[in-house]
Measured scan of single mutants.
Amino acid sequence: MQIFVKGLTGKTTTLEVEPSDTIENVKAKIQDKTGLPPDQQRLIFAGKQLEDGRTLSDYNIQKESTLHIVWR
């Protein structure tokens, strides 16, 4: 499925993911596209910070959802 990651600059990155992907895995995909290391990424969805060990489905993140990224 496709999801979007929007940064503070307003730039949006598209990712191809599975609902079973962990947040850690998603951060690795973001690094592949942007070069930003996972330890500098904070992902937010529906006002919650996403924890590395959880999956996208744990947070009810579905296709075409938009996550927000904040740099540490």
Rank of each mutant, 00 (worst) to 15 (best):
56 L>T: 02
63 K>D: 14
44 I>A: 05
63 K>N: 15
65 S>M: 11
64 E>I: 03
37 P>A: 11
5 V>F: 05
4 F>A: 03
44 I>H: 09
25 N>S: 14
2 Q>R: 14
72 R>A: 14
26 V>G: 00
37 P>K: 11
68 H>M: 11
71 W>R: 12
19 P>M: 08
18 E>S: 14
56 L>W: 02
1 M>G: 02
32 D>H: 14
9 T>I: 10
13 T>Y: 15
35 G>K: 05
54 R>W: 11
64 E>Q: 09
50 L>V: 04
50 L>K: 00
69 I>H: 03
40 Q>I: 09
52 D>T: 06
8 L>F: 12
70 V>Y: 13
9 T>M: 13
10 G>Q: 07
44 I>C: 10
57 S>W: 08
26 V>A: 02
36 L>F: 10
12 T>F: 11
18 E>R: 14
30 I>C: 02
38 P>T: 14
39 D>W: 13
51 E>A: 08
41 Q>E: 02
44 I>F: 15
61 I>E: 01
17 V>C: 06
61 I>A: 01
2 Q>M: 13
55 T>I: 06
33 K>S: 10
55 T>G: 02
70 V>W: 11
1 M>R: 02
2 Q>V: 14
45 F>Y: 12
11 K>Q: 12
64 E>W: 15
28 A>T: 09
59 Y>G: 01
37 P>Y: 06
54 R>N: 09
20 S>T: 13
17 V>W: 02
9 T>L: 12
28 A>G: 09
49 Q>E: 15
35 G>Y: 03
52 D>Y: 04
21 D>N: 06
47 G>L: 03
5 V>R: 01
48 K>I: 14
16 E>P: 03
41 Q>V: 15
58 D>I: 02
64 E>H: 14
26 V>H: 00
63 K>H: 15
68 H>W: 12
59 Y>L: 04
5 V>E: 01
23 I>H: 01
19 P>A: 08
7 G>H: 12
1 M>A: 02
28 A>D: 06
63 K>Y: 07
68 H>I: 14
43 L>N: 00
18 E>C: 09
51 E>L: 09
7 G>W: 15
2 Q>E: 09
42 R>W: 10
34 T>I: 13
10 G>E: 08
72 R>E: 15
10 G>W: 06
57 S>A: 14
19 P>H: 06
8 L>G: 08
34 T>P: 02
4 F>R: 06
72 R>D: 15
65 S>C: 05
16 E>V: 13
14 T>E: 07
36 L>N: 04
14 T>A: 10
30 I>S: 01
63 K>E: 12
33 K>N: 06
6 K>I: 14
34 T>A: 04
61 I>L: 04
58 D>P: 00
55 T>V: 06
68 H>D: 10
19 P>D: 06
27 K>Q: 02
54 R>Y: 13
57 S>L: 10
7 G>V: 08
3 I>V: 05
6 K>A: 07
64 E>L: 11
26 V>E: 00
39 D>G: 13
36 L>C: 07
67 L>W: 01
2 Q>W: 09
15 L>E: 01
68 H>F: 13
55 T>M: 09
28 A>L: 15
29 K>M: 13
1 M>D: 02
43 L>R: 00
12 T>C: 10
26 V>R: 00
33 K>T: 07
14 T>D: 04
42 R>E: 13
62 Q>R: 08
14 T>M: 12
24 E>M: 13
68 H>S: 08
48 K>H: 12
10 G>Y: 05
40 Q>V: 09
58 D>F: 13
49 Q>N: 10
14 T>W: 08
21 D>L: 05
28 A>H: 12
21 D>F: 07
45 F>R: 02
29 K>I: 06
72 R>F: 14
1 M>P: 01
46 A>N: 15
59 Y>E: 02
43 L>Y: 02
14 T>C: 07
58 D>E: 10
24 E>D: 07
32 D>I: 13
4 F>D: 02
20 S>R: 09
57 S>D: 08
24 E>I: 10
49 Q>H: 12
5 V>S: 01
15 L>K: 00
1 M>H: 04
59 Y>P: 00
53 G>F: 10
2 Q>P: 08
60 N>Y: 06
46 A>D: 12
32 D>G: 10
56 L>V: 08
2 Q>A: 07
17 V>Y: 03
50 L>C: 03
25 N>Q: 14
33 K>D: 05
66 T>L: 10
54 R>T: 06
63 K>A: 15
35 G>L: 04
42 R>C: 12
36 L>S: 04
48 K>C: 07
39 D>F: 10
71 W>Y: 13
66 T>D: 03
52 D>H: 06
41 Q>W: 15
46 A>M: 14
29 K>F: 05
19 P>C: 05
3 I>F: 01
2 Q>K: 13
62 Q>M: 11
51 E>G: 04
40 Q>G: 09
15 L>W: 03
56 L>Q: 00
39 D>T: 10
67 L>S: 01
44 I>D: 04
2 Q>S: 10
39 D>C: 09
69 I>N: 06
67 L>N: 00
22 T>C: 03
43 L>M: 03
59 Y>K: 00
18 E>W: 13
70 V>P: 02
71 W>T: 12
65 S>G: 06
9 T>A: 12
